[in-house]
């Protein structure tokens, strides 16, 4: 009896230590974010003073207002959304049938193409950026939204195909066979059986494409000049405070405003994230 209680106490003490450790660790991890939150809400601009504290003495939302009034954030948002929607529509329209066919049918060249796709998946698009630039230039697709959409959709096409193919592979073919024995035509088979089953994978792929477009800054800043074409990423990139210029509190506010939707989406689909990221990359 006595032994049991002492063991309990020891375990309790251990858990207290664990809680202290993880609370400290979480705080340490989140310092950059917390600092940005605190700076963006701080009413006194006592940044250069050394008496910084994480909880400001008085709060203000003027930095957030500045983000929306001094900079065309809504325009950036619109640009990002147009790009994201078009990229999404294009890459899913071409990706879903291709993924389905590669999962279900066996045909000449299938294995070779799949192997090639996996190799291509490891190719970072930064490396062919100049070639893309030089190829799209004469076609008038540089400094053109369509050009960027094509680049994004093409870059994500490999991921979309491999990822959704991996998911289709995990759906047993017997379900479809049963449906076709029951007299379902090919069109019915696709619309009534395959699509509903594939919905989670299409959703995850769509969200990953959305996040990619939302976060892409390099092509967006290189291929689109002119402030009226800025996406959120390019806009934020132009806003950043350097050693000498720029407003750090406004930048912090803008960063948080831009991150917030992505955080929401991320935690909404978090449980699918690991499989969504790993299934496509290595499964052959």
């Amino acid at each position: 009896m006595k032994l049991k209680t002492s063991k309990k106490i020891r375990r309790g003490a251990g858990h207290v230590c664990l809680h202290v450790f993880f609370t400290g660790l979480c705080f340490l991890t989140l310092i950059p974010v917390l600092y940005a939150v605190s700076v963006s809400l701080n009413a006194e601009n006592s940044l250069l003073g050394s008496n910084f504290r994480f909880i400001p003495e008085s709060f203000t939302i003027k930095n957030y207002l500045a983000v929306f009034t001094d900079y065309p954030v809504m325009l950036w948002f619109k640009n990002s959304m147009i790009l994201a929607a078009a990229t999404l529509a294009l890459s899913l329209t071409v990706g879903v049938p291709a993924a389905y066919v590669f999962s279900r049918r066996r045909f000449a060249g299938r294995n070779a193409i799949l192997k090639a796709l996996i190799l291509l998946y490891s190719f970072p698009s930064v490396l062919s950026m100049f070639a893309i630039y030089k190829l799209l230039g004469p076609m008038g697709l540089v400094d053109n939204r369509l050009g960027l959409i094509l680049i994004y959709a093409g870059t994500m096409a490999v991921f979309a195909l491999l990822n959704m193919k991996g998911y289709f592979d995990s759906i047993p073919q017997e379900i479809e066979e049963a449906a076709s024995i029951d007299g379902a035509g090919s069109l019915q088979l696709v619309s009534r059986v395959v699509m509903p089953l594939a919905r989670p994978s299409i959703l995850v792929t769509a969200v990953m494409i959305l996040i990619y477009v939302w976060n892409e800054y390099l092509f967006a800043t290189t291929f689109m000049t002119g402030a009226e074409n800025y996406t959120l990423a390019a806009g934020l990139y132009s806003l950043q405070a350097t050693e000498i210029s720029g407003s750090w509190p406004v930048f912090a506010a803008a960063s948080l405003v831009i991150s917030f939707p992505i955080l929401l989406v991320f935690f909404a689909i978090q449980r699918y994230m690991t499989s969504g990221l790993t299934a496509g990359g290595v499964k052959g």
């Binding site: 979480c26 974010v33 939302w214 950043q240 750090w248 930048f251 992505i262 991320f266």
Partner: peptide, 28 residues
């Protein structure tokens, strides 16, 4: 809480680190 760095857009986090932590004036 520990997932938040992953959830944040990567370039935003990097720029926040750059100004918020390493900058010689505003850096924490």
């Amino acid at each position: 809480l520990l997932m938040i760095p992953w959830a944040m857009p990567g370039y935003v986090s990097i720029l926040l680190w750059k100004t918020g932590m390493f900058n010689s004036q505003f850096g924490l």
